Computed example of a mutant assay.
Amino acid sequence: MIQSGKLTLDSSHSTETTGGKTDTFKRVDFPTPFPPGSDIIVQVTVQTFNGPETPGVRLHEVSNTGFKIRFNEIYGGGVTADGKHTSETVGWTAYTI
């Protein structure tokens, strides 16, 4: 089973550095839940270039019904990122293995 979609994502919060802290993540529900017990892979790609800093994508709690996602701006290249990022279009594909 393969499902895909896209969403508009931004980050108005500082970079999250505490593992498991997901209150700044956005929930994405699959159009159709995968069968219970499935091993699910989610791949994401930022499809626009609206902000100058690179938006790193974090995923959490991938389950048969959906996943959580957020941006964490990536530090590097002499750029100091604050974690906040403007709206970008993010495409996703989920499938079972």
Rank of each mutant, 00 (worst) to 15 (best):
G91N: 06
T15A: 10
Q47S: 11
S87T: 03
Y75H: 11
Q47E: 15
V62N: 02
T18V: 15
S63R: 15
V44A: 05
E88G: 07
E73H: 05
W92H: 00
P33A: 09
V28G: 02
I2L: 13
Y95M: 09
T86D: 10
Y95P: 02
P35I: 10
K21Y: 11
Q43C: 10
S87Q: 11
S14W: 15
L7S: 08
T22L: 07
F30D: 02
P52K: 13
T93Q: 04
P52V: 10
D82G: 15
K26A: 06
M1F: 05
R27V: 05
G76Q: 10
S4L: 07
V90Q: 02
V62F: 04
I40S: 02
V28L: 04
T96S: 11
G83S: 04
S38A: 15
G19F: 13
T17R: 10
T80E: 08
T32I: 07
T24S: 08
Q3W: 11
G51A: 12
G56N: 14
T24N: 12
D82P: 14
V79G: 02
R70G: 08
H60C: 05
A81F: 06
T96F: 00
G56A: 14
V57E: 07
Q3D: 03
V62E: 02
G20R: 06
G51N: 08
L59C: 08
K6L: 06
T65D: 06
P31M: 01
T65E: 12
P55N: 08
I41V: 15
K21L: 13
P35D: 15
G66W: 06
T93W: 01
G66P: 11
T24M: 03
P52Q: 13
I69T: 01
E73A: 12
I41C: 14
I74G: 00
N64C: 13
T45M: 15
H13A: 14
P33N: 06
N50Y: 00
M1N: 12
H13V: 04
